[in-house]
Amino acid sequence: MDDDLSSSLLCHENETCLKEGGEELEYQFAGSQHDCGVSEDERVGILIEREIVLGFKRDESMVFGDWVKRARVEAINWILKTRATLGFRFETAYLSVTYFDRFLSRRSIDSEKSWAIRLLSIACLSLAAKMEECNVPGLSEFKLDDYSFEGKVIQKMELLVLSTLEWEMGIITPFDFLSYFITKFCKESPPSPIFYKTMQLIFTTMKEVNLMDHKPSVIAVAATLVAMDQQLTRDAVELKMSSIPQHRLLESKDVFEYYNLIQRLYEENTKSDTHTPIEMTESSRVTSSAAMTKRRRLTFSDDEGSSHGKGPPG
């Protein structure tokens, strides 16, 4: 696979961040095996079964509206920027977006409450850091350009996210599968460059899709396969997948669909020959607008947003 595939899918800033973290990623990959008497095949089987319980599946009635999609991209950009500023792991950023999507799949936010989306992104990143990081900064370290929230307000939002997600914060991400799939697929090539490219692809497509719509295992397999080979047919994907002992637990149709999504993003970015962040595309999962009927409405009283600086309209 060309090196420009992964780089073309990222803006310069993100690409640099990923390259700076290259050694860290390699180290985590190398150290990801734990001897607990359970084979990696069994461990992955357990994870895939848990994905189903956690509710990673497409729900046509749960499609983000245009306003939410725009706000979501802004939130992701802020999360990635803050991740770099605070020195968090990439997994932490991804996990926070998973919380963000999971929350919005269960509660709606009114379009006039842009402050609530900002507050949600802070709470999600803070919670992800508390799950993943060694050193978690104080809430005052999570800075926004346009709003300022007091610690107790962020804490209240943390509790709302926790209760909405039913305290199930140990959510599975594609990174739980990467070392396994890369090792299975890359028998002849050294895994580190593939690992790095796969990471880039996962982060790029993150902006395009509601992460609750796709199983993390599917994202991990598809991204790994694209990182290895851009020319795979449906049959070739199925053949590759058959080398995984747990392949019966994975839907090859879903994997090929996600594989194609990454491919399409690559083609669109190379055509435009630009390194700017990806625009929402027509056939992307999150583009069609629909009412968020099943979700509970998020309401804050006006004084809850902030007590200093800019806050929600009073």
């Binding site: 005052s140 610690g151 804490q155 914060m169």
Partner: peptide
């Protein structure tokens, strides 16, 4: 969880989040 010293500046304690999320699964 909310009345510990300096709690407002740190939010919900990390260990409580980790413990409960483990128990939930």
């Amino acid at each position: 969880i909310l009345n510990e010293e300096n709690q407002a500046n740190n939010g919900v304690p990390y260990w409580i989040i980790r413990e409960i999320s483990i128990l939930k699964e």
